[in-house]
Amino acid sequence: IDVRFTVNGLDVTVRVRTEEIAERVKELAKNGVDWREIQRIAEELNK
């Protein structure tokens, strides 16, 4: 599942395995978490 969001004007796409992880990623993006941090968290959750 590809999750797309915009952080500080940057369009970011993170690929995740499940809808649940996708929701977590969207939540982080909404809360203004840095995209590199979101990427790292997504990689952890995908394991």
Rank of each mutant, 00 (worst) to 15 (best):
I1V: 08
I1A: 04
I1L: 11
I1E: 03
I1F: 15
I1R: 06
I1S: 05
D2S: 10
D2N: 11
D2I: 13
D2E: 15
D2R: 07
D2W: 12
D2T: 13
D2C: 10
V3M: 07
V3S: 01
V3Q: 01
V3R: 01
V3N: 01
V3I: 12
R4K: 15
R4P: 06
R4I: 15
R4F: 13
R4N: 13
R4L: 11
R4E: 09
R4D: 06
F5K: 00
F5N: 01
F5H: 02
F5A: 02
T6K: 11
T6H: 12
T6G: 03
T6P: 05
T6N: 13
V7D: 05
V7Y: 11
V7A: 09
V7G: 04
V7S: 10
N8R: 05
N8L: 07
N8P: 03
N8I: 03
N8T: 04
G9W: 03
G9A: 04
L10H: 14
L10D: 08
L10F: 15
L10C: 06
L10N: 10
D11F: 13
D11N: 12
D11V: 15
D11R: 10
D11I: 15
D11Y: 12
V12F: 15
V12Q: 05
V12G: 03
V12H: 13
V12N: 02
T13C: 09
T13I: 15
T13E: 07
T13Y: 12
T13H: 10
T13V: 15
T13A: 08
V14M: 10
V14A: 02
V14C: 04
V14N: 00
V14L: 14
V14D: 00
V14I: 15
R15Q: 10
R15P: 06
R15K: 11
V16W: 01
V16D: 00
V16T: 05
V16P: 00
V16I: 02
V16F: 03
V16G: 01
V16M: 02
R17C: 08
R17A: 15
R17L: 15
R17N: 14
R17D: 07
R17M: 15
R17E: 12
R17V: 15
R17H: 13
R17Q: 13
T18R: 02
T18V: 02
T18A: 03
T18S: 11
T18G: 04
T18W: 02
T18P: 01
T18D: 09
T18H: 04
E19F: 10
E19R: 11
E19P: 13
E19M: 12
E19T: 10
E19H: 13
E19N: 11
E19K: 12
E19Q: 14
E19S: 12
E19D: 09
E20R: 08
E20H: 09
E20T: 08
E20Y: 12
E20W: 14
E20I: 08
E20L: 09
E20Q: 13
I21W: 02
I21C: 02
I21D: 07
I21R: 00
I21A: 06
I21E: 03
I21M: 05
I21H: 07
I21S: 03
I21V: 06
I21T: 03
I21N: 03
A22Y: 05
A22T: 01
A22I: 02
A22P: 00
A22E: 05
A22K: 05
E23I: 12
R24S: 06
R24G: 02
V25E: 00
V25P: 00
V25N: 00
V25D: 00
V25L: 15
V25Y: 01
V25S: 00
V25Q: 00
V25F: 02
V25A: 01
K26W: 09
K26Y: 11
K26C: 08
K26F: 09
K26D: 03
K26N: 07
K26P: 00
K26R: 15
E27S: 08
E27M: 10
E27Y: 09
E27F: 09
E27Q: 13
E27K: 08
E27C: 03
E27A: 11
L28H: 04
L28Q: 02
L28K: 01
L28W: 05
L28F: 06
L28N: 01
L28V: 02
L28Y: 05
L28I: 03
A29C: 08
A29K: 05
A29N: 06
A29F: 15
A29G: 05
A29T: 04
A29M: 12
A29S: 06
A29R: 05
A29L: 13
K30T: 11
K30Q: 12
K30V: 10
N31V: 08
G32V: 06
G32M: 08
G32F: 06
V33S: 06
V33K: 06
V33G: 04
V33W: 10
V33T: 11
V33L: 12
V33P: 01
V33D: 03
D34N: 10
D34Q: 08
D34A: 11
D34T: 10
D34M: 07
D34K: 07
D34R: 05
W35S: 06
W35P: 11
W35E: 05
W35C: 05
W35Q: 04
W35F: 14
R36Q: 15
R36V: 15
R36A: 15
R36W: 13
R36N: 14
E37C: 06
E37S: 07
E37Y: 05
E37R: 04
E37W: 05
E37P: 00
E37T: 11
I38F: 02
I38C: 02
I38R: 00
I38A: 01
I38N: 00
I38H: 00
I38D: 00
I38L: 07
Q39C: 14
Q39S: 08
Q39N: 07
Q39V: 15
Q39T: 11
Q39R: 10
Q39P: 02
Q39Y: 08
R40M: 11
R40V: 09
R40D: 07
R40H: 08
R40W: 08
R40K: 12
R40C: 10
I41S: 02
I41V: 08
I41Q: 06
I41E: 05
I41P: 00
A42K: 01
A42Y: 03
A42G: 02
A42T: 07
A42S: 06
E43C: 08
E43K: 09
E43V: 08
E43R: 07
E44D: 09
E44T: 07
E44N: 06
E44Q: 07
L45M: 12
L45N: 02
L45G: 03
L45E: 04
L45I: 03
L45A: 06
L45F: 06
N46W: 06
N46E: 04
N46T: 02
N46G: 05
N46P: 02
N46H: 03
K47R: 10
K47H: 14
K47C: 11
K47L: 14
K47A: 15
K47I: 14
